[in-house]
C-alpha cells in the first residue's frame, strides 16, 4: 500500500503510424518514466500501440459540467457546420 496516493497520469496511444494519439485511460505512477512503463504494460498488451504518451492528469484544465448549456448548446442548431453535404471519394481513405 502506498503511503501517499501516487499521482495520476493520462495515457494516449497511437494505434498505427499516421493516426493521432487517442486517450486510452489513466495510470498511477510516481513519475513520468514509470508512468510510461505502466501505460505500456496496462494499455498496449494486445499490440494496440506504436506510440504512447503520458501526461499528468493535474495538467488538464477541464470545462465545468455546469457550463455545458452555454458552451455546447448553441452549436445544436448549426447543422451547416457539419461536412455531411459532401460525398467523400473512397480514394481519400482515412480522414
Amino acid at each position: 500500500m502506498p503511503e501517499t496516493p501516487m499521482p495520476l497520469w493520462e495515457v494516449f496511444i497511437r494505434s498505427r503510424s499516421g493516426s493521432p494519439h487517442k486517450h486510452a485511460g489513466s495510470v498511477h505512477a510516481p513519475d513520468a518514466t514509470m508512468a510510461l512503463q505502466a501505460a505500456r504494460d496496462v494499455y498496449t498488451r494486445r499490440g494496440e500501440s506504436v506510440s504512447v504518451w503520458v501526461m499528468p492528469s493535474s495538467a488538464i484544465t477541464a470545462s465545468d459540467p455546469a457550463d455545458k448549456d452555454e458552451l455546447f448548446e448553441p452549436t445544436g442548431t448549426k447543422i451547416y457546420r457539419h461536412p455531411t453535404f459532401y460525398e467523400v471519394p473512397d480514394e481519400v481513405g482515412h480522414m
Binding site: P2, M6, A29, Q37, A38, D41, V42, R45
Partner: peptide, 12 residues
C-alpha cells in the same frame, strides 16, 4: 502486487 499497474506489469 503493490499497485494494479505493477500487478499487470509483473504478469507481462
Amino acid at each position: 502486487a503493490p499497485l494494479l499497474e505493477e500487478d499487470i506489469a509483473l504478469s507481462n
